[in-house]
Design a protein around this nucleic acid. Structure first.
Length: 820
DNA sequence: GCGGCGCTTATACC
DNA sequence: ACCGGTATAAGCGCCGC
């Protein structure tokens, strides 16, 4: 009774209501119950913590005719003892649910500790009448968001009481935040103003690339009202943004202090999961420094995985490289995902130059250059974050996962999370993740038949039309209802395996249709009212739609369905072949086609004729499928396969009416060919497309051949760059770039997987090209013969062949000239 | 010692 | 392991002669 009164008094005293936007999510258990801890901001911009109670739960799906009462009674008796905990079943609910679209009777089981849900589920496994156990493998935070409706980065009205007792709720009251509240009620707020995060960008410089091996020489920060470089190196006349610390340990302490004072929502770096944060942590440990970056005073935690992820309590650590790599890279022009290239493309800002070979002997001037370089990296990272923020925000809002995860998840996971968070309107229980053996089986299945590619007849064509299907594979999935839930169990009919899908729309195609509709809506709104947010929103839906097909064919997917993926490719093929047939029958000549696009000759038809014809084709297409006019092209060049028979697929050059050139597949767009070859080929292609003949292009070729023979070409134009995609010991075949990488390693240059290896081919003997591989600094002359025969001539040979010009004799002509 | 050829590897297209 | 299949092409490395 007394306890009750005190509780009431507490309520009256500390009851509060405020606006809150959750940014970071975490969970803990306290006295046998589960809580979610959200760090975010209130309407006054104060950073705080809201704790919400959440009962962990999962489902069992019952067999038809199961004795529900008996099962429930048995389930209630289950207890799991583990790591000194006892987890019990709190309560159960018997429900009518759906699983893969079918109606099922299910028991929802609430347990006292999330960590043991899996074990409780296993314990239940053997009971009679139980068909499946599901949702025990969904992360606690994801479950909470799904079931509470409290989503990241949206505004809520929170009713609750301040937590003041330091011993309460695992000590959340000790967090370094402005307020800490246990929620009674969290409801969506009318406040719809956009959340603007407080961002701090950082970057470190070290004297050894290997993590923790060298010293952290300096750390830079850039944010709203903060611009700083911390260092323990001595240097005269340093700019005023440099702050000197006594030693490396003091510098790291100061780093922690600066982050805590600034109290950002987001701490961002570029490749900081793999470098900056683990480096700082390692050096802090070595120096015996408390690296308490988090609001809980603890250091960053690194999750194990292929790439470690650095998590800081209460501050979202965002490694922009991860997001760019997972979500953006396929839409970027950049040949590498280095900060410099990506920032140049997206924000037009570049890094500064610094010659790192100076590190062993630094003068004051060099230090000042390095401070400036270090600061600029943070500036560039900050600007990149500002640019990409709308995309990160939209992804988080759409897939309803916290920032930390959204910035690290790959597209398949985004699609999966989108599904997970939208299943409730279908009353669906979530499918489980595939187990290890299941993944193995799926992968062992091998490939299924994919897209159709038309073999072009080499030649220079005039006046082409290009049609393409909008979001083809996604629209096929929707139009034919292809998914795991709609798959009718494949059955044999004679020797054929019959694979069919139900007509009634299942949840995946329905969600996808919604995604496509939204994409259209926001794209339209964007055209009328351009804004970064609308662009990001439209783009996020487009990306999700484009990843949907790959998701169903991905072996790690909960809703993996090989039949659906294969059927998607098959129906797509059927439709493009059908469209090609119609275009042919209408009297046009097909020039090329790849997957979802068709190029054909305009002939004597007008643009109006073409558009009318297009709408006729569209009238006959199934479901939401749609063929679109991509563009008209003035000229198009298609070439022969190298040394082979037939036209080369995935290789062509087009020029549109406005003179815009589109080059696909040629060496020009391949980063593993030297600059000289790429520039020459690009020049040759554009001259041919502009002129309609090869005369000017031939002059360009002759000039380059002569320059090369006279050795007037700079080495930088001859460097070949190839990515090292595995460890040096893992190669079966030792290609030139592997030889180059081994040479680098021998010189003490750190070599790692993913690096672009740069080398050139020098003069000398040796059977292999690899025997003549040299690094940039080597004092060896480049091999003119190699660059002529293995680079320049192969790249232009089949282009000139279209005009009946033999480049070998052209080159020999140049050689003759040189000899006489 | 050398040409042929299968295989490995990187990169691109959609 | 972190979305799929289709395609070109270089260069290695082995085989047979």
């Amino acid at each position: 009774m007394l306890v009750h009164i005190i509780f009431k008094v507490n309520c009256i005293l500390f009851f509060m209501e405020f606006e809150f936007v959750p940014v970071d999510f975490d969970y803990f258990d306290f006295e046998g119950r589960n809580y979610v801890r959200m760090i975010g901001r209130n309407e006054k911009g104060q950073k705080g913590c809201v704790v919400d109670f959440h009962d962990a739960n999962f489902y069992v799906v019952l067999k038809k005719g199961a004795d529900v009462k008996k099962i429930v009674e048995k389930i209630k008796e289950i207890e799991v003892r583990r790591s000194g905990r006892v987890t019990k079943v709190l309560r159960t609910e018997v429900l009518d649910k759906k699983f893969l679209g079918k109606s099922v009777k299910a028991v929802r089981i609430f347990v006292t500790n999330y960590k043991d849900a899996h074990d409780v589920a296993s314990e239940i496994g053997d009971l009679d009448g139980i068909d499946k156990r599901r949702e025990y493998d969904i992360p606690m935070v994801t479950k909470y968001i799904k079931e509470s409706g409290v989503e990241p980065l949206r505004w809520y009205t929170v009713e609750g009481q301040e937590i003041e007792d330091e011993n309460q709720l695992s000590g959340v009251a000790n967090l370094n935040v402005d307020f800490c509240v246990l929620a009674n009620k969290i409801k969506p707020s009318k406040n719809d103003k956009e959340f603007v995060p407080k961002i701090l960008a950082y970057d470190i410089e070290t004297n050894d690339r290997e993590i923790g091996k060298g010293d952290v020489l300096m750390v830079s920060f850039f944010g709203d009202g903060i611009k700083k470089v911390l260092t323990w190196k001595k240097c005269g006349n340093a700019p005023n943004y440099v702050e000197f610390c006594e030693d490396e340990g003091k510098m790291i302490e100061r780093f922690v202090e600066c982050v805590n004072d600034y109290a950002p929502d987001i701490l961002t770096g570029y490749f900081s999961d793999g470098f900056d944060l683990p480096y700082l942590k390692a050096v802090a440990e070595r120096s015996g420094i408390d690296f308490g970056l988090g609001v809980d005073g603890k250091g960053p935690l690194f999750s194990r995985g292929r790439i470690p992820s650095g998590k800081i309590s209460g501050i979202v650590h965002v490694d922009l490289y991860r997001f760019v790599d997972a979500v953006f890279s396929q839409y970027l022009q950049s040949e590498t995902l280095s900060l410099n290239e990506v920032a140049k493309e997206l924000v037009g800002e570049e890094k500064e130059d610094f010659d790192f070979s100076k590190l062993s002997n630094m003068k004051d001037l060099d230090w000042r250059d390095l401070f400036s370089y270090n600061l600029q990296d943070s500036v560039v990272t900050y600007k990149l974050m500002e640019k990409i923020w709308p995309d990160i925000l939209e992804f988080s809002l759409i897939v309803k996962e916290p920032l930390f995860d959204v910035t690290r998840d790959r597209m398949a996971t985004h699609v999966e999370n989108y599904i997970l968070h939208n299943l409730d309107r279908f009353n669906e229980i979530v499918e489980k993740r595939p187990m290890h053996n299941e993944i193995g089986e799926r992968r062992a299945m091998g490939k299924y038949e994919g897209a159709f590619v038309f073999e072009p007849k080499p030649g220079l064509y005039e006046n082409l039309v290009m049609f393409d299907f909008t979001s083809m594979y996604a629209s096929v999935i929707v139009s034919y209802n292809l998914s795991k839930a709609s798959l009718i169990e494949p059955h044999k009919k004679g020797n054929d395996l019959i694979v069919e899908f139900e007509k009634k729309k299942s949840f995946f195609p329905e969600m996808l249709e919604d995604i496509i509709k939204r994409r259209k809506k926001y794209k339209k709104e964007l055209a009328q009212n351009p804004s970064g947010i609308l662009k990001a929103r439209s783009n996020a839906y487009k990306l999700l739609a484009n990843a949907a097909y790959g998701y169903q064919g991905f072996f790690g997917a909960r809703y993996y369905c090989r039949e659906a993926a294969a059927a998607t490719a098959s129906f797509a093929k059927k439709n493009i072949l059908g469209a090609i047939d119609k275009i042919k029958k209408a009297g046009y000549t097909i020039v090329y086609s790849d997957t979802d696009s068709i190029a054909f000759l305009q002939g004597s038809k007008t643009e109006k004729d073409i558009l009318k014809f297009l709408s006729e084709i569209n009238a006959g297409l199934p479901g939401i499928m749609e063929l679109d006019l991509e563009n008209f092209y003035k000229r198009g060049l298609f070439v022969l396969k190298r040394g082979g028979v037939g036209g080369a697929k995935k290789k062509y050059a087009l020029v549109d009416e406005k003179g815009r050139i589109k080059i696909r597949g040629f060496e020009t767009v391949r980063r593993d060919w030297c600059r000289l070859t790429r520039d020459l080929q690009s020049d040759v292609l554009s001259k041919i497309l502009e002129d309609g003949d090869e005369k000017r292009a031939l002059k360009v070729l002759k000039k380059v051949v002569e320059d090369l023979m006279k050795r007037k070409v700079g080495l930088d134009e001859l460097m070949i760059r190839t990515q090292l995609r595995r460890g040096l010991g893992d190669y079966v075949s030792e290609g030139p770039h592997v030889v180059a990488a081994k040479k680098m390693e021998a010189l003490g240059v750190p070599v790692s997987t993913g690096m672009l290896i740069e080398y050139f081919i020098g003069e000398g003997s040796g059977k292999r090209i690899g025997d003549r591989v040299h690094l940039a600094g080597d004092r060896v002359g480049y091999d003119v013969d190699y660059y002529l025969k293995n680079q320049i001539l192969p790249a232009v040979e089949n282009i000139f062949e279209v005009f009946g010009v033999d480049v070998k004799s052209v080159a020999e002509g140049s050689e003759q000239k040189k000899l006489f």
